Computed example of a mutant assay.
Amino acid sequence: MSTVFDFSAVGLAGQPVNLAQYHDKVLLIVNTASACGFTPQYAGLEKLHERFHERGFEVLGFPCNQFGAQESGTHEEIGAFCEKNYGVTFPLFAKVDVNGADAHPLFQHLKKTAPGLLGTEGIKWNFTKFLVRRDGTVAKRYAPATKPDDIADDIEALLGA
């Protein structure tokens, strides 16, 4: 069975990133956008990152332009926006598709492993979140409207496990 550690992605600066480097960490993988009604969640995601990072937690942000063209900027613009407006220090990756024929293999895996409501695999909007255990398996999927702070107890439970 595959885990998220079997995948790689391109970092925001264009470098290849093997997700195996996050082995033994609890992850929150999020498809993000800079011009979305949920964009202020960047602040909450950064707070989670700051709160739990020293205990082996990482937020991984994957910008996506598939929902209302809400992430149309360049990689440089995305990074600058996130740093300037939300003080983001967690890793951001190059833009990906999360649905359709060109969906990134990581998101194909996440959707299959943790389907949404009524068993649907498709991601409905920006800021869908996947909480991943230290062994790389998906613990839970959260809807875009779920605030990052509402995930803190689940993160705590996985970090303590």
Rank of each mutant, 00 (worst) to 15 (best):
G61S: 05
H49L: 00
G87D: 04
G116D: 05
V59A: 06
V96N: 04
G136N: 11
L131K: 00
G68E: 09
E71G: 13
C64K: 06
T39H: 11
V4H: 02
L118C: 05
P40F: 03
F90M: 03
A152M: 00
A13W: 01
K112H: 14
S2V: 05
D153G: 06
V98M: 12
A114H: 05
S34W: 09
A139G: 00
A114T: 08
D6I: 10
V59C: 05
T3I: 14
D6Q: 13
V132M: 09
G37C: 05
L92R: 02
L159P: 00
T32V: 15
A43C: 04
P144V: 11
K112Y: 04
A101M: 13
I123S: 13
N99I: 10
T74D: 04
T39D: 07
N85S: 12
F67L: 12
A33Y: 08
K25R: 15
K129W: 02
S72I: 14
G160A: 14
P63E: 08
L48F: 11
A69Y: 08
V59H: 06
V132P: 04
H49D: 10
A35V: 01
L92A: 04
Q21I: 15
Y86K: 01
Y22P: 11
G116C: 08
E58R: 10
V88H: 07
V96Q: 08
A157Q: 06
Q70A: 12
P144N: 07
Y22G: 11
A114Q: 12
F5C: 06
E77V: 03
G122Y: 14
S8Y: 01
Y42Q: 10
N18T: 09
A143T: 07
A9Q: 12
Q41G: 03
G37P: 02
V26P: 02
H23Y: 02
R141F: 10
S72V: 15
K25P: 01
K140A: 03
A114P: 12
L12N: 14
L110R: 02
K47S: 13
A69G: 04
N85G: 03
K95A: 10
N126I: 12
E46I: 08
A139C: 00
V96H: 03
G61Y: 12
F52P: 01
P115H: 11
G61W: 13
N18K: 14
G14I: 12
Q66G: 13
A80W: 01
S2Y: 08
A101Q: 14
H109I: 06
Q70K: 09
G122K: 14
Q41L: 07
K111C: 12
L106F: 09
T146G: 00
L131H: 02
P91F: 06
R51K: 15
C64R: 04
F130A: 04
N85P: 01
P148S: 12
D102M: 03
T74E: 09
A103Y: 11
I78Q: 10
S34D: 02
V138G: 13
L131F: 02
D149T: 13
A43Y: 02
L131T: 01
P91D: 06
I78V: 15
G14L: 12
A69H: 14
L45K: 11
A94V: 01
A145N: 10
T3M: 06
T113M: 13
A161Y: 02
A101R: 15
F127K: 12
T120R: 15
P148N: 06
G11N: 12
V98F: 10
